[in-house]
Design a protein around this nucleic acid. Structure first.
Lengths: 122, 122
DNA sequence: TTGACATATTCCCATATGGGAATGTAATGT
DNA sequence: ACATTACATTCCCATATGGGAATATGTCAA
């Protein structure tokens, strides 16, 4: 099987740096495609294709007005990503605490430098 | 140009659902490969390849002991992802507020239902 | 209508993929 | 030494990609 489609979910959609760039650009306010093109420095068809992906997974909304299309990022759609990463937050805090504790232990009794004294695992 | 490599960065690495599953499984404590295999229900070579990707981008750490390899997720490596999504947090809160305000406005003066009364854009 | 403009879509292609199957490698037990 | 166990790596392949080029679609203006 090949890799999952970029339109399969938000995780795949934001894996592309250009799309992240576009999302950041469009979150402060809606812009038309031409502005996005000059902002990201790709040519128009490429931008349109990226916008198509972002549209399909709901990361952007479009408003049509004459021959212009105004895009803006739908921040709500980024929440699942944020929440998934948040489930790991307490663990990286654990890691930081372990490092800090180790540092403080060494400060308190310099000389003892075995890094495996603190309980690890589990 | 093809899609960026899964090993190009954390965003690409976690785009694969199986790898997210593995990361969640390995964050509570280290496990050996065999346990991961039964946990995710893929066969061993596939799991090893996923672990290889996760290793290469620093999302997991390995400890070798005899013929076993103990993997655990390096939560720190997920922080960049968390922080990127966090830059959108205030915007989805904005959206929620707009929805709430609109609901309250309609409660206060039912009948006026033009959804474009509230200031948009910029 | 004709033309200019704004965007989307299609076609082409080099490249990376993830799974299955087979094979390689290192450590252990006998 | 040999078989077994625990992983990693390699090979194969159908599939999706992102960019460039060309083309299509839709809207306005004269």
């Amino acid at each position: 099987m090949a890799r999952a489609a970029t339109t399969s979910d938000v995780f795949n959609a934001v894996a592309e740096p250009r799309r992240r760039q576009i999302l950041s650009f469009l979150v402060v306010g809606e812009r038309q495609v031409g502005e996005i093109v000059t902002a990201v420095g790709l040519d128009q068809p490429s931008v349109s294709k990226h916008l198509g992906v972002l549209r399909e997974v709901g990361l952007v909304h479009v408003r049509r007005n004459g021959r212009h299309r105004f895009y803006r990022t739908n921040a709500e759609a980024i929440r699942p990503l944020h929440e998934w990463t948040a489930t790991f937050e307490r663990y990286w805090q654990h890691q930081l605490n372990r490092v800090k504790e180790r540092a403080e232990t060494q400060m308190g009794s310099p000389g003892k430098s075995d890094p495996n004294l603190t309980k690890e695992k589990q």
